[in-house]
């Protein structure tokens, strides 16, 4: 009844408004159709490579050369995954374990430090504060590659004020151990750490100061106030920064190659996967050549499978914690 009434009312109102209402309605529908097509196309564009990788990864090799097979494999197989997970190729289980440990510990360390620093910048007045914050900005802007050459040597012949050389007569080679990277992370100089400091600071600045003042009046110390009062409030930004740190560390190639080359990580083993496959196939086929040539389609397939295996944990994390990634960031209120 009410629906019918509304409909009558619509045409009646439309007539009274000289067709303005109708035009407006048509415009709205048109806009939403155009929007749907545009967004659908763009979403498809973004998702298509992933979908295609999934479909390719389940194909047998003969399907790759079959022009009839496009998306749905004719001979369904999980052999590619097994091949990629092989200890001689990606060493998936080992790499996964190492990557998990490294990314987790690094992310925890980085975020703990960045939260402290961000809080310091947000809440305290001290001399040279502007200068130090400008330095944070500088850290965001400087590409780590600029200083990589000297960092490389710095850790190859590591020494603290010549002490080691005095005692043992030699400098310590820290390259190949993970220690330098942990040190760097503890000093807030890891991957995109300036950005985390900036985000945490921005978040803390939006929290009213009254609560802390009340805590101070009640005799709570600075550190205790921070841990007891402020940290629980900053949970959303800390989780989202942690997720970023974890994910970016997971896929990072630069620092991993430089400092963690000794550890089998999924990210570093992915970059050499195709060459490894070639060597591996040559070995099992027993031919004398050093590396077998594999067809582009086949190597693409292996690469797709490897990529999928690496991003699978990330997709899982993203699906679970999507809100933490997107919403908390947009509520930070990034300003300049």
């Amino acid at each position: 009844m009410t629906k019918g009434k509304a409909k009558v009312n619509f045409w009646e109102r439309n007539r009274l408004s000289n067709g303005y209402l109708m035009r407006k309605k048509v415009m709205a529908v048109g806009v939403s159709i155009v929007r749907f097509i545009l967004l659908f196309g763009l979403c498809f564009l973004i998702l298509q490579p992933i979908l295609q990788k999934i479909s390719v990864s389940f194909m047998e090799e003969q399907d790759l050369y079959n022009p009839i097979v496009i998306n749905i494999p004719e001979h369904f197989t999980t052999e590619n995954y097994r091949l990629c997970a092989d200890p001689q190729i990606m060493d998936y289980s080992n790499g996964l374990k190492n990557s998990l440990i490294v990314s987790f510990t690094i992310a925890i360390l980085q975020i703990a430090m960045c939260t402290l620093v961000g809080y310091g910048f947000a809440r305290f007045k001290f001399p040279l504060k502007k200068f130090w914050f400008a330095m944070v900005m500088l850290v965001i802007v400087i590409p780590p590659q600029t200083i990589s050459s000297s960092l490389y040597l710095h850790f190859k012949y590591f020494d603290i004020l010549g002490i080691f050389k005095l005692i043992t007569g030699e400098t310590v080679n820290l390259r190949g151990s993970a220690l330098p990277y942990y040190l760097i992370s503890a000093g807030c100089m890891g991957l995109k750490n300036g950005l985390y400091i900036y985000m945490v600071r921005q978040y803390f600045r939006n929290i009213p100061i009254d609560l802390e003042e009340a805590a101070y009046i009640d005799g709570c110390g600075t550190l205790k106030t921070f841990v007891r009062i402020m940290l629980p409030q900053a949970k959303p930004i800390i989780t989202s920064c942690f997720l970023f740190a974890f994910v970016w560390q997971w896929t990072d190639g630069f620092y991993s190659q430089m400092f963690l080359s000794q550890i089998r990580l999924v990210s570093t083993s992915l970059s050499t996967i195709v060459d490894r496959i070639a060597v591996y196939l040559a070995r099992i086929s027993g031919s004398g050549v050093e590396s077998a040539t594999i067809s582009p389609a086949r190597s693409n397939q292996i690469l797709s499978t490897g990529t999928l295996m690496i991003v699978f944990p990330l997709i899982f994390i993203y699906l679970v914690a999507q809100r933490q990634f997107v919403e908390s960031l947009s509520s930070t209120g990034i300003k300049m």
Binding site: M113, L116, V117, Y119, G120, F121, R123, F124, K125, F126, P127, K129, W132, M135, V136, V139, I184, A186, G187, C188, M189, I197, T222, L223, F226
Partner: peptide, 16 residues
């Protein structure tokens, strides 16, 4: 407060 501020950002200063 200034001193505690510096303590909070000390990791950054040292690392930097």
């Amino acid at each position: 407060k200034a001193i505690s501020g510096y303590i909070f950002i000390a990791p950054f200063i040292i690392g930097f």
